[in-house]
Structure formats: structure tokens, C-alpha cells
Nucleic acid binder design. Structure first.
Length: 500
RNA sequence: GGUUCCGUGGCCGAGUGGCUAGGCUGAGCUCUGCAAAAGCUCCUACAGCGGUUCGAAUCCGCUCGGAACCUCCA
């Protein structure tokens, strides 16, 4: 039996609000689209959480044996800072402020984004299409929607007719909103507005004279609307209906709602079977966002240079911290929580290097331990298959760490389980840590000269101990500790050290 | 105002009808010359008030408190 059938994945589908058993359109294959960043600024830690979530999800699908096509776009087209006509082109604005070409802005922040992804060990998607490379397709689908009577032109711009769409479909199916309420609440249509209803949204916008990013179209020079790029790129690379669409919770409405309307209107098919939304990273209970001024850049987190931070935290500590909560819950950021994560993660990381070094020797098999290890192995899969519950999976890995430490210290002998089970246990721990959760051992800054010097001191201390000169041996240990080096005496008289 | 979600032990966080995760902190024990590390044990909670049920942190209602979305946002 293969892993896909052995551990069927259930996931919370935002479209139905229920946990459902995942069934892919084509057996063994998964098509997943995730809304990527708008590259006019550095990505912050909150953004990173979303990409981490879908990184782990795609990793787990692959781990079970699915062939995954993971598409994550780059939004580089220069949408407006405001949805109305008053807004300014984000990328154009940044370009003016920094005196750069818009594509220099795009390049700079795309590079920054990729750097952050590498830092947190977030794997690249299979395809990373950019909106500016799909202008023709965006114009084509806009034409198609006009032909279908679901879009109208007004003064060089084209808008999606939500009311019309709602006559034959359900606008609001994803976010649970109803069209009447939407038309009543919110901002009023101002007199300048060309839209028939304020809930209508732009498929194509006419470019004002000073707008830098612009392309020719049947309606004159302009640029595509915010939502259409995702519809175009997901359809192009994954088909008119695909398995999973993901993104941050804050994109659910209106962005994803509009995507559903456009795609359904244009292709006559439900575009997505499962919608997944990852929740927000909060700071003191409030959403981390640029506008609130409570966002940190990953670089500020690592160096500890942000005023809200007591000290710096490593990328893997941060990754671990985020995986300790479920992706569908908000996660509150605090120094205390990060400090706890730092210690906890060190424990896992140490067990990881320990388990790699363990080997099996035959002995008398213990039924109780065998049963426990078998059950721990199965739990890893079961917890990940249960809506990608990384928090529960980590809890299992901690229990496995205790057993690993037992083997290392000799509390339990590896021979208490048979060789096959021992290897499975080893492989499960290593692969869930590294492949599924993407947690790597953090390589300490090993420096050959330093390592050599410490070894010399260790030899001196060994000599002092055999001479029962504990005053000297303790001094060596204490002084090294003060310098940030912790010596650990092993059972067999060997010593190891750890940099703090 | 509308829509939706949340409120778990000293702290962070899983859990969504019975079997009461895990981590961090604190206390104790074992090992150790002493430490560190490790192993074991303990401190055991579900905002409040009602209701449903043999049984509720988990379902329903109300109250209080917090958040997200309704405007760009991961």
C-alpha cells in the first residue's frame, strides 16, 4: 500500500468551511496555486508565514508521493495603492521615490523575496510566473468576459459586472457575503467613478498620462486589474479547474472571491476544488502589517535590530516557532515565545544530529518499546495528514527525541527493537524534520582554529581530571562557559562542546 | 454598522462530545567528583452564566473581552 492511500489527507476547505478528505483531480498529481508577493517593498515576517505554510503543504504532498505542480506568482504589474481611481501605481510610486525604473523596483524586491525564502528554507515553486509576462492573456480573458456580457467598458477601463454575474451564479460563495449587503455597506460610489455598482471591480484600467506601467489594449493604453492575473496564470499552468488555491486570509475577500467570479464567468467551470487560507501573524494581538508599523523584516529579526525585539533569532528558530501553531490560527509574536522556541528547537536539532549517528546492534527485543516506536512513526503521518497539523507532528518528534536520547545515553539499547524498526524510526525522524517540516540542523559557526584550540583545552582538562585536579578542570570549564562555550562530559570520559 | 473567527494551566500553543498534546519556566529525583546535557516525576487548564447529554474545553443560547474582513494587504 502506498503512502497516499495509507494516510489520506484531510484539509479544511474555506469554500465549504469543513474539513474534507482530499481527492486530487488526477490521481497522484496535485495542482496548487498560491498568491505571491507584490514586489514593491521588502517582504515582512507576516508574509513569510503564508509562504512557509504552503511550503510545508507542498513538501508533505511530495513526501507522500504526489507529483506536485506548485505555482506561485509575482505581482509586478503596478496596481493602485487604492482600489478607486484616486490611487497611485504602487510600483510606479516606489520607482519615483527611489528614482528607479519600475522594473528595477520589481527586480530589487523580487531578489529580496527570494533571499528571504532561501533563508527560511522555503523551497521555490515549480513555476513562478509574473503578471507582466501575461498581459496578452489578461487582455484575452477580459475580451472573453465582455463577449459573455459579464464585463463592460467605461472610458477606457473595463469592469466586471458583479450584479449580472450574480443572476446566474453566486457572488460571495467563498467569503459568505451577500451582494445586497455589499452594495449597501462600504464606501459610496463617488461621482468620478465609472463603475455601475461599487462592488464591480476592474479587469482593465485606463492609464493616466503620468502612469508609468502601461500596455496597449483594445480599450487604449492601460494596465490589468488586481484580480485577473491570478485567474490567468492559474488557468494557464494548472487548467480551468485545479486542486488547491492558497493564500493569506486577508486575500479571501475580495481578491479570491473575484477570482472565482472571473474564472467561472469566463470558463463556465468551478476553478478550484479546495481553497486554503493561512491565518495572520499578530504582534500584541494585532495583525502584522506595514501600515500599522508593527512589521519586522526577516533581517531585523535575525539581527535583533527591531525595537520590539530583545535579541536576534535564527531562521530555523523562527521556522520552528511558526510551525508550532496551526496555519489556520493566528499566531502571536513575542520575545518570550521566541526564546522558548529557541531552546525547544535546539533540543530537536541536537536529537537530529544524534539520531544520524546512531547505529543498530542486535539484542533482546522489547515489545513495549517496539510498540511505542511503531506508534510514534504512524503518528507523524497521521498528524500531518490531519490538515497539515505541524504542531501535533512536532509534539511527536519531541517524544521521539526522548527515545533518541535514551539510545544515546544507553538508557535503552538499540537492540531492544529489531533492525527494520530501528531504521524506520531513524528515517522517519530525519525525513519529517528535514524533508517535511524543512527544519535543518543549524550549523554552528565552526572555525577550524577555534575548534583546534578548544580541543587543546579539552585535553588539558582531561589530564587535570585524571589527576583529580578538580580546581583546574572546573576553572577550564567555567572560563570557557564565560566565553560562550559549554563543555559536556560524556559517560565514557569523552568531552563535547557547544557554542552558545 | 454588517460578516466571520477567537478567548485553554505561570507563559507559548495543540485538541472540537468520554481516552484530559507538546514546548518553555519552576520544583524534586536519577546519572555525574561537581556541573552541563539527558532520563523520570510533579505543578493539570479550558472567559463567565445558563442549557442539551449518561458524559462538554469540545454542541446550543446569552453576557463579557479580543481579533480579522467589509479599502491596499500574506
Amino acid at each position: 500500500m502506498n503512502l497516499i492511500d495509507q494516510y489520506p489527507i484531510s484539509l479544511t476547505n474555506s469554500l465549504t468551511g469543513k474539513k474534507e478528505v482530499f481527492k486530487s483531480l488526477v490521481p497522484g498529481y496535485v495542482g496548487m496555486y498560491v498568491c505571491g508577493p507584490t514586489v514593491y517593498n521588502n517582504v515582512h515576517l507576516g508574509n513569510t508565514r503564508t509562504f512557509l505554510t504552503f511550503d510545508v503543504i507542498s513538501r508533505y504532498f511530495r513526501f507522500l508521493g504526489y507529483k506536485v505542480r506548485y505555482v506561485r506568482n509575482i505581482t509586478d504589474v503596478g496596481h493602485l495603492t487604492d482600489d478607486g481611481d484616486a490611487g497611485e501605481d504602487k510600483i510606479g510610486k516606489k520607482a519615483r521615490l527611489e528614482q528607479l525604473e519600475p522594473m528595477e523596483v520589481v527586480k530589487r524586491y523580487t531578489e529580496d523575496f527570494h533571499g528571504v525564502m532561501r533563508l527560511f528554507n522555503i523551497l521555490p515553486p515549480s513555476i513562478e510566473p509574473s503578471a507582466t509576462a501575461h498581459i496578452i492573456e489578461q487582455i484575452e480573458i477580459t475580451k472573453k468576459l465582455m463577449e459573455a456580457g459579464l464585463a463592460y467598458e467605461a472610458n477606457g477601463s473595463v469592469y466586471f459586472d458583479v450584479k449580472k454575474y450574480n443572476q446566474s451564479h453566486h457572488y460571495g460563495i467563498l467569503s459568505g457575503r451577500n451582494i445586497e449587503e455589499l452594495m449597501e455597506s462600504g464606501r459610496d460610489l463617488d461621482s468620478q467613478d465609472e463603475k455601475r455598482e461599487k462592488i464591480d471591480f476592474a479587469l482593465w484600467k485606463k492609464a493616466s498620462a503620468e502612469h508609468i506601467m502601461r500596455w496597449p489594449s483594445p480599450w487604449g493604453d492601460g494596465f490589468p486589474g488586481w484580480h485577473i492575473e491570478c485567474t490567468v496564470m492559474s488557468t494557464k499552468y494548472l487548467g480551468e479547474t485545479f486542486d488547491i488555491h492558497g493564500g493569506g486570509m486577508d486575500l479571501k475577500f475580495p481578491h479570491h472571491e473575484c477570482e472565482i467570479a472571473q474564472a467561472t464567468g469566463a470558463n463556465g467551470k468551478v476553478p478550484v476544488n479546495y481553497w486554503l487560507h493561512s491565518n495572520m501573524l499578530t504582534v500584541n494581538g494585532q495583525k502584522m502589517s506595514k501600515s500599522l508599523g508593527n512589521s519586522f523584516l526577516p533581517s531585523e529579526l535575525i539581527s535583533g535590530s527591531h525595537p520590539l525585539l530583545d535579541k536576534g533569532y535564527s531562521p530555523m528558530t523562527t521556522r520552528f516557532f511558526m510551525l508550532q501553531s496551526h496555519y489556520s490560527s493566528t499566531l502571536d509574536f513575542s520575545n518570550e515565545a521566541l526564546q522558548a522556541s529557541e531552546k525547544a528547537y535546539r533540543r530537536l536539532s541536537t536529537a537530529l544530529s544524534t539520531v544520524k549517528a546512531l547505529s543498530h546492534t542486535e539484542g533482546k527485543v522489547d515489545e513495549g518499546l517496539s510498540k511505542e516506536l511503531n506508534s510514534l512513526i504512524a503518528s507523524c503521518y497521521q498528524n500531518m495528514s490531519d490538515d497539515f497539523n505541524t504542531a501535533k507532528t512536532l509534539a511527536v518528534l519531541f517524544e521521539m527525541s526522548s527515545r533518541i536520547n535514551d539510545f544515546k545515553s544507553g538508557n535503552r539499547k538499540t537492540g531492544e527493537v529489531n533492525a527494520e524498526l530501528f531504521t524506520a524510526f531513524q528515517k522517519t525522524y530525519i525525513s519529517f524534520m528535514e524533508e517535511v517540516l524543512g527544519l535543518q540542523e543549524e550549523t554552528q559557526l565552526h572555525n577550524n582554529a577555534l575548534d583546534g584550540a578548544i580541543k587543546v583545552l579539552i585535553e588539558l582538562r582531561k589530564k587535570a581530571r585524571t589527576d583529580r585536579n578538580y580546581a583546574l578542570s572546573d576553572k577550564i570549564r567555567d572560563d570557557l562557559k564565560a566565553a560562550g562555550i559549554q563543555l559536556k562530559d560524556g559517560k565514557d570520559g569523552e568531552m563535547s562542546y557547544e557554542l552558545e
